[in-house]
Write a protein that binds this DNA or RNA. Structure first.
Lengths: 351, 351
DNA sequence: CTGTTAGCGCATTCAC
DNA sequence: GTGAATGCGCTAACAG
């Protein structure tokens, strides 16, 4: 067995010669073409294995327009959901014979556009995007050119690609409703900006749940801001200073949680005796916090799995049917992954 | 400006025709070859921009043996240091015109080998490995074939590639020494298995620091095990049950920290009054834990930066000098990134 | 079922 | 300084 020990490059030509067949027969045999006799295939496979043959993906991609490369475009690497998604996507793709090109954009639409074009340069077969929503023009062109595209977590207004979203509104409704069911009426809210889908939808869920029970939406209990730890800290401090009679808090801005928790601790706020707390998006930190924090699990794992499935289906369909306008039109669809309440010890009945 | 809107593929040939030059001249101009006159270059650049020309990486890689793709091989996506490294590596590479192919192995040497070969199939220009240490044969062959290789965090006995390591022994020594300087003598240790470099070296640092002050290494204070949360929880419970007079604890197994903290909380152990705690490897959780936990920062950021620099240097050198045996021999070198003590509130003078 | 032919798009020799 | 010619390694018509 010499496999990768061979310093002379072993190409299809080498294998074909060793097997006494033409290069195209060798190619077909290795690709599992049904046009090849069992014996021929066996011989080719055997020689290929002996020689340690490996198909050159660059050559293969150049000819076949299939690179077996998939791009994943993320905002950043801070958010726990993004970790989960990168992990799941990578695992599923590898299992299917694809490799993952990972890049972050810091939420900058121009960096995102540049990155998407670079991915296209590399001939990626598809791209999964947690994006700014600003580059539907680019990705729609990709689709027309036969590249697969899936939006995840963040929608893109004019994108004709399928979109997999979390249930932000429903999850927020459930969180708020849960606090209400525990007897809370003065429920604080620290969330993301309204300009972000998630920020807007979660707030809507919160407000709806209050209205449903006839509880007024009190702006003194509500602070919205950027997705940062610093915002979380200042918002929490502000809310505590306001003396609003708040008995429960819904922390709907994931990044802000990193600022909220220390401020609660530093101010000696006892959870859940003084304040019931529930957060959006689970993470290890919240599981082992003292007390463990109740959360709405946004289903990052399921989001990633569904996104990969949709992508792989597109790739298969494109291969067999091409990208006719009708097929593209049928692609456009929004999928929702349900949120799930995970009650832990940070939430308690109002005394 | 139509750029990516063009549905007809614009190749070098298109650009060359538009600029009234040959394909080779267009290629040289775009590549910044000094052989091209300023006027010609200007014309070619202008036409390329107008046409939205993008170089086909697959074709370029096939011809030039340079894919502008780099592989990063990780054990998993759980460890905080791995997040940091993936993030830094990706950013630096993108800035240099490379894209990152990310994959995890779950520490399985066979999966690792398979992954490395797949990366080679894609013609990656280099690979950064946080590996099992079992595949030096593969990576050494890569080096001989002109691919760049850098080992990070985990060394590989027979690898001739440069290796960037954290200062596990020194960091552990410093952690232990720091606890000693606070008056502690009964210092517990929960760490990784001795078969892992990091596990072995950190324990050595701990033991050395004790010996240096004539403190006996007491096995009843020491538990070593796998890099898991579960191990951390059981080890901590065991240590508490033993009633050893322990006044400080050095948690040297990063993953285990996720199990250690909740058990301490659940048992009502007050930090630092009942127990001083210091951990190896920083993470957001430890910064905002109540009280904030003192750590030894292993310098993941610096590890990643150095690894990328070493990789890029290799790529440049290979391009100009080829991979002569002498050059390869000069590559083999171990770099250490210093650890840093970050005292926070979880450590206090022994009462 | 298999072989022959023909490029994919680019970078690089070799001429001029 | 520029052009013409060549082929990287593979897949996909097109023949038989």
């Amino acid at each position: 067995m010499h496999g990768y020990m061979a310093l002379v490059t072993v190409t299809l030509r080498t294998v074909a010669a060793a097997a006494n067949v033409s290069v195209s027969t060798a190619s077909r045999a290795l690709a599992g073409s049904p046009l090849i006799s069992a014996e021929t295939r066996a011989v080719v496979d055997a020689r290929a294995a002996e020689l340690g043959y490996r198909t050159n993906r660059a050559a293969s991609a150049l000819r076949s327009k299939r690179s077996h490369l998939i791009g994943l475009v993320l905002n950043n690497f801070v958010n726990q959901s993004f970790h989960t998604i990168a992990d799941i996507v990578q695992r599923k793709l590898t299992a299917e014979g694809y490799q993952l090109i990972l890049s972050t954009t810091d939420g900058d639409p121009r960096a995102e556009e540049s990155l998407l074009l670079t991915l296209a340069d590399h001939g990626v077969d598809g791209v999964i995007i947690i994006g700014s929503g600003q580059n539907a023009g680019v990705t729609n062109t990709f689709l027309e050119q036969g590249m697969a595209v899936v939006n995840v977590i963040r929608s893109s207004r004019d994108s004709i690609a399928p979109t997999v979203l979390a249930s932000d509104r429903d999850g927020a409704f459930e969180a708020t409703n849960y606090l209400e069911s525990l007897g809370h009426r003065r429920i604080g809210y620290i969330g993301g900006v309204e300009s972000a889908d998630s920020g807007r939808e979660r707030f809507a869920g919160y407000a709806d749940a209050l209205s449903r029970r006839g509880i007024p939406v009190d702006s003194s209990l509500i602070i919205q801001g950027p997705f940062t730890q610093e915002f979380g800290a200042s918002a929490m401090a502000e809310l505590l200073a306001r003396d609003t009679g708040m008995t429960a808090l819904f922390a709907a801005n994931h990044e802000a949680v990193f600022g909220i928790l220390p401020v609660l601790g530093a101010n000696g706020v006892r959870i859940p005796q003084d304040l019931s707390l529930i957060c959006f998006e689970d993470m290890p930190l919240l599981q082992m916090w003292q007390p463990p924090v109740s959360v709405i699990d946004n289903g990052a794992t399921q989001l990633a799995e569904l996104a990969v499935d949709l992508l792989l289906n597109q790739i298969k369909a494109t291969t067999s049917e091409g990208s006719t306008p009708e097929r593209l039109r049928k692609l456009t669809r929004t999928y929702r992954v349900g949120a799930q309440l995970v009650p832990r010890s940070s939430t308690a009945r109002k005394v």
